[in-house]
C-alpha cells in the first residue's frame, strides 16, 4: 500500500562496514522499524549504535547490504527522485555565498521536474516559513552573519520548505547550547504541527527525545540493533512547562533505564 499509513518501513536491514586488518564493523544487524505516517519518531543510543547509519539508509545515501527499506512504499532513491525527503544534517550545511532566503529556496530549484509534480499543495511560502522561524530580519543576510542557532533554523526551514513526506534529522541540535536547543525544539514542533511530515530524528539527548517524540527507538552498539521502542503518551503541544512535570521526568527515567539496559546487555 504505497503512501498508506506507514511512512517508513525497514525490514531486516543489515549494514556492515569493512575494517582493514580487523573484524568488520556491523553497523546494523537485522533491524526492523515501522514509522506510521505523520508521527515523530526519535532514535536514541550511544555512539556507534548505528542510528546515523539507519538514517542514511532511509535517506538513500547508503544501501543496506541485506534487507529492505521503503519510504512511503518506494525505495529511498525513488523517494529522493520524487522529492519526498528532507534532510537536516548535524551541521547546518548552508552555502556561504547565498543569502538565507536563497539558501532555503535552492533545493526547490534543483530537480525541477519533481518540484512541479509536487506543487499541488498550497501552503505557507518560504518567506512565511522564515518569519515563523524568527528569521524575518535575517532573510537577506549571509550565513556567516548569523548565530549557530539561526543557521540551524535556516537548515530546518530549508528541509520543511520542500514539504517533504518524510523529514530526516541527524542530531540537528547537538552543536548548540542548551538554551538555544530548547527554543529550537519548540519551533521545530510548531513547524511540524503545521506541515505534518513524518519525522525520523536521531539524537543522543534523552530529554530532547522525550519532548519531541511520539515514539522513541532505543538502539545498542556492537552489533547495531534496536533494543526497545517506547511510546510517549504526553499531550501536545509540548511547551516549556511540560519539561517540569512528573510525567515528563517519568519518561526521561524510563528512557535512561532502557539505555542503561542496552549498555549492560552489551557488556555482558
Amino acid at each position: 500500500m504505497p503512501g498508506g499509513s506507514v511512512s517508513i518501513s525497514v525490514r531486516g536491514a543489515r549494514r556492515v562496514y569493512p575494517v582493514k586488518g580487523g573484524t568488520d564493523l556491523i553497523a546494523l544487524d537485522d533491524v526492523d522499524l515501522t514509522v506510521p505516517a505523520g508521527s515523530f519518531v526519535s532514535v536514541i543510543g550511544p555512539s556507534g549504535c548505528g542510528k546515523s547509519t539507519l538514517l542514511r539508509l532511509v535517506a538513500g545515501l547508503e544501501d543496506a547490504d541485506r534487507g529492505d527499506v521503503r519510504v512511503c512504499g518506494v525505495r529511498p532513491a525513488e523517494a529522493a527522485a520524487a522529492k519526498m525527503l528532507g534532510l537536516v544534517p548535524q551541521a547546518p550545511a548552508l552555502l556561504p555565498w547565498l543569502t538565507v532566503l536563497k539558501n532555503v529556496t535552492l533545493p526547490l530549484r534543483v530537480n525541477r521536474a519533481a518540484s512541479r509534480r509536487r506543487a499541488s499543495a498550497p501552503g505557507p511560502s518560504m518567506e512565511e516559513l522564515l518569519r515563523k522561524a524568527g528569521l524575518q530580519d535575517a532573510m537577506h543576510k549571509l550565513p556567516s552573519q548569523l548565530s549557530g542557532g539561526m543557521q540551524q533554523r535556516t537548515a530546518i526551514v530549508r528541509a520543511f520548505g520542500l514539504r517533504p513526506d518524510v523529514l530526516l534529522m541527524d542530531e540537528p541540535f547537538s552543536a548548540l547550547d542548551e538554551f538555544t536547543r530548547e527554543s529550537l525544539q519548540e519551533q521545530l514542533l510548531d513547524l511540524w504541527d503545521e506541515l505534518k511530515a513524518t519525522v525520523l530524528f536521531v539524537t543522543h539527548s534523552v530529554s530532547e527525545a522525550v519532548r519531541l517524540s511520539d515514539k522513541i527507538v532505543v538502539m545498542a552498539p556492537r552489533p547495531g540493533r534496536i533494543t526497545d521502542i517506547i511510546d510517549v503518551h504526553l499531550p501536545r503541544p509540548r511547551g516549556a512547562e511540560l519539561l517540569k512535570t512528573p510525567e515528563f521526568h517519568h519518561y526521561e527515567d524510563l528512557v535512561r533505564d532502557r539505555l542503561r539496559g542496552a549498555f549492560q546487555a552489551n557488556a555482558a
Partner: peptide
C-alpha cells in the same frame, strides 16, 4: 562539505546542478 552534498542528494539534484549551483561557486 559532505553534509551539503547529502542535503542535495536527498532532493536528487543532478550532477550538472550540483556542479553549477554548488561546486563552481565553492571553487571561486
Amino acid at each position: 562539505p559532505q553534509p551539503v552534498l547529502q542535503v542535495y542528494r536527498t532532493v536528487n539534484a543532478s550532477r550538472l546542478e550540483t556542479l553549477w549551483y554548488i561546486r563552481i561557486p565553492m571553487a571561486m
